[in-house]
Design a protein around this nucleic acid. Structure first.
Lengths: 291, 291
DNA sequence: TATATAATGAAACATATGGATCTTTTTCAA
DNA sequence: TTGAAAAAGATCCATATGTTTCATTATATA
């Protein structure tokens, strides 16, 4: 689509608000075609006028012309491309071409879809409930599961200060447990092969009366015996390695559920975080100049 | 689509004008979704009121509801996920608790499926190729993207010693670049809001002649200007936070592609790793006893 | 620092939209 | 042929839409 290229090409020359609207248009072409301008503006977090300005900026006569472009694209795509993808998926393993990537992605997609079955959902909800009432949440995940543990912790720090990540240089990771009590909960993430360190720390925490909830890969995982709640996620992939994508997804869902419990408070915390990071100049949208 | 069936079933019971409108709707579903009611009426050769009457005849509350059906159908071809987000927004916050998790997981599943479109696959392959020929691979991902960067690095260390993770205590993360050359490649992971530190380090590396490839969220990400190759992955979710699940999936696919380039060597490296970790008693399948 | 300029937000406007109402036409049984 | 009932057409209304204008706020320049 030439219009898309044009938006990308002119993006850098746009004002911040125009960029915002342009970005939304790039990422949600169907919405542009199907929904009113004011609605698109609302979704993009922009004033209605900005959408008109975007269209003019792109050299079009008005917003309607912009929509016309995307409507035309959708008309073609209707039974064109998307249908083919779906067809490919339905054909299953038929896709040859040595297309490892496609296989993996579709497999992962299916695994996530499976996670939305009632049993998983119930476990997610139960685990979120348990975490909700905790004074502090200790997060433990070693080796491959470090990524998931860290990410969970990171998101939780955006929301407040309840989260403690059990990791640190020089083998000091477990030290934070010193003052853990039975009011606290530990979220353990571990998949096969289970890291000895994870099991030891979890066991220790349990002996201190800390409640354990876990994200793991099987009903027969050693973590199950320690845990009040467990969520099971698949780790199989058709590559050499186990996949952590479902585990990360589960962790993200947990974060969301926790945030939903108290929307207003979550929003407030996020705004506070935003302000803090703004003060620190943490983020940028252009390549910074150095001298 | 059940609505289509319904129209067919009730067709015989309609008056001539209603049939005319129904027929047009059946034959031009995209128009119904994309165009105003009056316009559809004009195209169908029918009075505007007839379209309203058709909708009511079908038991719908009004024409808008009829259009909503066809819009939803069109969206499934295109994105699918954005629609779900939108729907949530419209429903307001009254979505049932249990549905949040389910929504999120299904949305993520759709996003991963979308990553297996030809364009993404081409980008994945090209990026893997570029990484393959590198002497060293520097991996950079700060803040939320740390999880992905770390996981990529971790898997790469299982395969060999080409990977260097640009992270470290005391702000020493960038030091490893000191000896980077044009034979090396840097994998940068960053999504909006882009961490200033990431952009700065990537820019610096590029000036040193290091090739840049990136995983980011948009064609208009600042990383695109720096990168020889870029892979785009969605980050939208219907929660407060951006999702990193697609980015992690992409990173896992990259690892697999890299391993596949030389299966025997990858296998050997993994066995070596296994042996090493075995010697260290890193893993266990039962809860360890302490005394 | 003061001033010019661009960017943004808010409000006002003309118009198009979907729906409701009322009138005319058609249909068909008595 | 006539009268009742259904269908179709015409008209009107409140609302939502895309656009423009103007005031306000950032941003850059001198």
């Amino acid at each position: 689509m030439p219009l898309k290229e044009q938006i990308i090409a002119q993006y850098d020359a746009m004002s911040p608000q125009l960029q915002r609207s342009a970005r939304y248009v790039l990422e949600h072409p169907e919405e542009v075609a199907l929904v009113s301008m004011r609605e698109v503006a609302r979704l993009a977090g922009v004033q209605p006028a900005t959408m008109t300005r975007l269209a003019k900026f792109l050299g079009l006569s008005g917003y309607d012309e912009l929509r016309a472009h995307y409507a035309a694209a959708l008309r073609q795509g209707g039974d064109g491309f998307a249908a083919k993808v779906r067809q490919r998926v339905e054909e299953g393993s038929e896709a040859l071409e040595g297309d490892i990537a496609s296989h993996m992605l579709q497999g992962l997609s299916a695994q996530l879809a499976k996670l939305s079955e009632p049993d998983s959902l119930k476990r997610l909800q139960a685990t979120a409930n348990r975490l909700r009432s905790a004074r502090k949440v200790y997060v433990l995940g070693l080796r491959s599961c470090h990524a998931v543990a860290w990410h969970f912790h990171y998101v939780m720090t955006l929301l407040g200060d309840r989260s403690v990540h059990l990791d640190g240089p020089g083998g000091t990771g477990g030290d934070a447990l010193i003052r853990a009590t039975s009011e606290d909960v530990m979220l353990v993430i571990s998949i096969k092969p289970y890291a000895t360190g994870t099991l030891e720390l979890a066991q220790l925490a349990k002996e201190q009366g800390v409640g354990i909830v876990s994200i793991t890969d099987s009903e027969v995982s050693p973590l199950v015996a320690l845990s009040e709640q467990a969520i099971f996620c698949p780790t199989e992939s058709d590559s050499f390695f186990h996949t952590l994508t479902p585990a990360l997804a589960v962790s993200e869902v947990l974060c969301s559920l926790l945030a939903e419990f108290d929307r207003p408070k979550a929003l407030e915390a996020l705004q506070q975080t935003d302000q803090h990071l703004l003060n620190l100049n943490t983020y940028s949208t252009a390549i910074p100049k150095r001298q």
